[in-house]
Computed example of a mutant assay.
Amino acid sequence: MSAHTPLAILLDLSEENRLTSDDFTCALSAARVRATKPGTTPTKCADGGGLTLYIPPTGAKVWRYRYRLGGKEQILTVGAYPDVSLEHARIAHRAARWLVARGIHPLSYAEQEARRRAEEAQAFDEHTFRAIAEKWQQATATNLAPRTVEHRRAMLDKHVMQTIGAKSIGSITRKELHSMLTELDQVSPVTARHCRGYIRQIFEYAEDAELVDANPTPRARVLVNATKRSEVPRKALPLNHLGEFLKTLDDAPETDPTTKAALRLLVLTWCRTSEVIGALGRVRPGDRDVGHPS
């Protein structure tokens, strides 16, 4: 049942206000409702307090609530039987009577509440962590290589979105981020460090947009394994070994030709890795072999 239907709204209202009893004796039973058959003219089976099971000659059974408000008689259709059981019809009826006693038309209340819930749901969808992360991606992708953008998107999808992606960004706490990141730190410290950095930036973006009051991202030191990890610089290749390296690279039978070309470009041009990858992506069939001019 949709949370935006009049029936659902009346059921919720009855529960919220603990409307559990009637000031009259109910006349119907589940067995009688089930057994009553249509006649040649409309049949009306009163339960009490204005609640009636209406059965036209076609056989469809409908719950109706007849009431007076502002000096005029009104009829509220509660729902069709058996989709709406006798028990649920009575619960909704109590909520409708409660509203009428306060001078409120039940259907008008239900329509207004349905609009409010729809607007609230839309706002929630627009302010989930996933939605804000996507806006952050778009806002910060301009000066990044497409490969970098896709890499961070894939990392967030795999390690973060499953846990907090569907949550409203304003409801996410430091405690749950701490739990998620420290668990990731146990199995993949480097990934945990990157994810924490992305999460911090996303919350900074949300903070600037006044969607959150503060950034709940835990401090870097909570990632114990990532903090202890140290990068060991690799030794530079001596210049007098460069020729031997290139010959060994050429003779490596299992190395992909594209990888060989990329390594030659890196050595001979001192380009960035991302620039070499981009250049190789633009090589067309028939172009000369990279690194081997003829």
Rank of each mutant, 00 (worst) to 15 (best):
Y65F: 15
R147G: 13
A154T: 15
T128Q: 10
W98L: 04
F24S: 11
S21K: 13
R272N: 00
Y198A: 02
M161I: 06
T142A: 13
E126N: 13
K167M: 14
V190F: 08
P238T: 04
I132G: 09
A60L: 01
G281T: 02
A206Y: 09
Y198C: 01
D251I: 00
D287Y: 10
A133Q: 11
K167G: 05
F124K: 12
T182R: 10
H93G: 12
L144N: 00
T173W: 00
S179W: 00
P106H: 00
D83Q: 15
A145H: 12
N225Y: 04
E275R: 03
A139H: 14
A46L: 08
P216G: 02
G50Y: 03
T43R: 15
R116P: 02
W136F: 03
Q122C: 02
R221W: 07
P293Q: 07
H159S: 13
P253Q: 06
L268K: 02
S108E: 15
P216E: 04
V100R: 05
A252H: 14
T58Q: 12
A27M: 12
A96D: 08
T128I: 10
A154I: 05
V283P: 08
H159P: 09
R229M: 11
F24C: 10
G165I: 03
G50E: 06
A131H: 02
L19F: 07
G278D: 11
G286W: 03
L265V: 08
L249K: 06
V149D: 06
W270R: 09
G197H: 09
R288M: 14
R284H: 07
V290S: 04
R196Q: 09
V62H: 01
P216A: 01
L223M: 02
V190D: 15
G291T: 08
C26R: 15
A123R: 15
G291P: 11
T36A: 08
K61N: 03
F24Q: 10
